[in-house]
């Protein structure tokens, strides 16, 4: 045992954990199960042949065609996976053709905010080259026809306040917490492939074969290669 070993042993000596941890976790488990289930039950989805055009907590018109119905089904599956912490991106297309040009630009910027990250309304305003239109950006996001899929909940006030949300600020808080606790990169211990969470490859992965990575570079450093389908390095 050399000096570094001794220092590491001292540094990593076991320390006491916080009190009443178990009861707090059980409370948190009950809350998590209740809230996710409720949100899933409330959501209705509408689609055109081009993509999902409306997500609301109210009764919507049925899909006009078989293709639109398939898109609604795909969106429902992806949303359920997202709300259960099993998906970090949406593959279903969205149709924003009925949205005014300014709002569309705002939504396109919001759509590119990575999973688990947040931006300020002012940041979005700068990105669309209307730095003074912060309030208009807030209005455009507030009228987002496809919330969750276009992640307007990732836009907050510059002072860190949550701002408004179509489904209420409690749901916005819950979504942000969900994204903070959902990993983005997962590797399969049998195939040694690293994917974005939600990739089709990960769907059949046994929980005991799943390891999370902090970056594609970290995964490579221990012998994993990036998935060619979901391309985690480009995300």
């Amino acid at each position: 045992m050399d000096r570094v070993d001794e220092m590491l042993a001292a540094h990593f000596s076991v320390e006491p954990a916080p009190a009443e941890l178990a009861s707090r976790i059980v409370r948190r488990a009950h809350d998590a199960e209740r809230e996710v289930g409720r949100l899933l039950d409330e959501i209705e989805i509408a689609a055109t042949d081009r993509g999902v055009c409306l997500v609301r907590a109210e009764r919507l018109a049925p899909p006009p065609s078989a293709k639109a119905r398939r898109l609604v089904e795909q969106a429902r599956v992806e949303l359920a996976e997202y709300l259960q912490g099993k998906r970090t991106f949406f593959a279903v297309p969205v149709d924003l053709s009925g949205v005014p040009a300014f709002q569309r630009r705002v939504l396109e910027v919001a759509r590119r905010i990575p999973f688990g990250e947040v931006r300020a309304y002012a940041w979005v305003a700068e990105r669309i080259r209307h730095p003074r239109a912060v309030r208009a950006v807030g209005t455009a996001l507030g009228r987002n026809p496809v919330p969750l899929i276009v992640p307007c909940h990732r836009v907050l006030r510059s002072d860190g306040g949550v701002g408004g949300y179509l489904f209420g600020t409690r749901v916005k808080d819950r979504l942000l917490a969900l994204e903070r606790s959902t990993p983005v990169l997962e590797g399969c211990t049998t195939t040694r492939i690293v994917c974005r969470v939600g990739c089709v490859h990960g769907r059949h992965m046994s929980p005991s074969n799943r390891v999370v990575f902090a970056s594609v570079a970290d995964a490579r450093s221990v012998g994993y290669r990036p998935c060619k389908v979901c391309r985690p390095a480009a995300a």
Partner: peptide
């Protein structure tokens, strides 16, 4: 636990205003 911790470390590397 390591899956949770590794993802937290990833989150810290990302840009945005930190929570």
């Amino acid at each position: 636990l390591t899956n949770v911790c590794v993802d937290e470390l990833r989150r810290r590397k990302t840009v945005g205003f930190p929570v």
